[in-house]
Design a binder for these strands. Structure first.
Length: 422
RNA sequence: GGAGGUGUAGCCUAAUUGGUAAGGCAGCAGUCUUGAAAACUGCCGGGUUUACGCCCUUGUAGGUUCGAGUCCUAUCACCUCCGCCA
């Protein structure tokens, strides 16, 4: 959510900026409603003040055994007016809220304008794209050959897109999770969090999954809970409706969770194997910090993620997303993509974003600045570090050998327990 | 799932038959001091306002009332006991 005051005072600028993203919003209507709201609020406040003052008088008169019938009669009509104002106010606030929840965040000045993914900018490419002197197998073949993942049985017990990891497949998943968490905690200073996998409606709204991405989430309707599409949701909502101490910032949280996504619109080649699935594992990075620090913290997350990909020796590139390809809540996003030699394309394994105060405003996460004593919204950032399935594809495909075996990256070996799959 | 109890600001604790949230601790600033402690003064939930001020806040949402921490309804969290359960 954007600052209503900022919109009011910079209407043209905001219109221009959000026009660069693909989310329509009726800001003119907001301006009208906002003006009406403030008018009514001030009138209602005056009446409430009158009621408070007179009610006190009535109390004093009653105590002195006097007659307050006239004042009480007046207050009856005043109270009725207040009630009418409050009803109208609630209607307006509901309407404003609906608009505001659909106004996207304003892109950072460093973000390139663009219509679609073609306009994203590659800012760094790392590693050598491997050359093979034998026919390259796709990950779908490799997982079958080594019995790492059983897609058919997964489809049987749950549905298409619910892979069953088994044997070395299950083990390498566990190894990757351990590697990621250990690095995030020991090298980058994050605190490990193991959160609930289901969240309530307020949490889903707090991080911006509702109302924008409702169709992407599985819902436990009887209990009004949502299966998390990313641990960003619980990791940020931990602090919902809180005022944090300045001394506690920045907060660095990392968490491993399964993630659940309905992904209704996907089809075709993209979903082959484990390229895109309904349930997958991910280790997430979340930061809560002061506004003036968020872009430095953003750069640090990007560096951390790149560092981990290098540790796995995975050829990858960084993309600065253009305005048209960004999500609603972000001001700036850098995607990390790993090279798939069999599919001959780049696969997204991480997305690092700064939400500035957008999520904080929605989720009402603030901090008290010691120097001024004032309460301000925090900035929130998140990044994957990393998502497992495509990272696994990268490892399997890039490290395959002529004899069909797969070498395990050195950094992963101590977690995996051996140096190859064969 | 059943029964009972408890929710007041960071923490602890008051508030008469309904009369508009008292106080303490911690914390922050200042005075005093060589420095510190102690003592004293002010601040010490949120919003809004240049400011004075005003509005909101007793878990949450409603209701009754001129007026609700207090009465009524619903709901949530925690504690105790019972049941079920990895």
């Amino acid at each position: 959510m954007l600052d209503p005051k900022f919109i009011r005072e910079n209407l043209d600028f905001v219109k221009e900026q959000i026009g660069k993203k693909k989310y329509p919003a009726d800001l003119d209507k907001f301006i009208d409603l906002d003006a009406e709201k403030r008018k009514i609020l001030s009138e209602a406040d005056q009446l409430k003040n009158r009621r408070n003052v007179v009610s006190k008088e009535i109390g004093a008169i009653k105590k002195a055994k006097g007659n307050a019938d006239e004042l009480i009669a007046e207050m009856q009509t005043v109270s009725k007016s207040i009630q009418e104002f409050d009803v109208r106010l609630k209607e307006i606030e509901l309407a404003i809220n609906e608009i505001m929840l659909n106004v996207p965040n304003i892109p950072h000045e460093s973000v390139p304008f663009g219509e679609n993914p073609n306009d994203n900018v590659t800012i760094e490419t790392w590693g050598e794209i491997p050359k093979f002197d034998f026919p390259v197998l796709e990950h779908t073949d490799l997982i079958e050959k080594h019995k790492l993942i059983d897609l058919k049985r997964g489809a049987k017990i749950a549905g298409s897109g619910f892979p069953v990891f088994m044997g070395d497949g299950a083990r390498i998943q566990r190894a990757l999770i351990s590697l990621f968490l250990d690095r995030n905690v020991n090298l980058y200073g994050f605190t490990e969090i193991s959160p609930p996998l289901l969240v309530n409606e307020d949490s889903a709204r707090g991080t911006g999954q509702l109302p924008d991405k409702e169709a992407q989430m599985y819902e436990a309707t009887i209990d009004k809970l949502f299966l998390i599409p990313t641990s960003e949701v619980p990791l940020v909502n931990l602090y919902r409706d809180e005022i944090l101490d300045e001394a506690d910032l920045p907060i660095y949280n990392t968490g491993y969770t399964p993630c659940f996504r309905r992904e209704a619109g996907s089809y075709g080649k993209d979903v082959k194997g484990i390229n895109r699935v309904h349930q997958f594992d991910k280790v997430e990075l979340v930061k809560i910090c002061k506004p003036e620090d968020s872009y430095a913290e953003f750069d640090k997350i990007v560096e951390n993620v790149a560092d981990t990909l290098k540790a796995l020796n995975l050829p990858h590139r960084q993309l600065l997303l253009c305005t048209g390809d960004m999500g609603m809540t972000q001001t700036k996003t850098i995607d990390f993509e790993v090279w798939s030699p069999a599919q001959e394309k780049w696969l997204e394994v991480s997305s690092v974003s700064n939400c500035e105060s957008y999520q904080a405003r929605r989720a009402n996460i603030r901090f008290r600045r010691t120097s001024t004593g004032k309460v301000e919204f925090v900035h929130t950032l998140n990044g994957s570090g990393l998502a497992l399935p495509r990272t696994l594809i990268g490892i399997l495909e890039n490290n395959q050998q002529a004899d069909g075996s797969i070498l395990i990256p050195e950094a992963l070996q101590k977690f995996f327990g051996k140096d190859k799959i064969q």
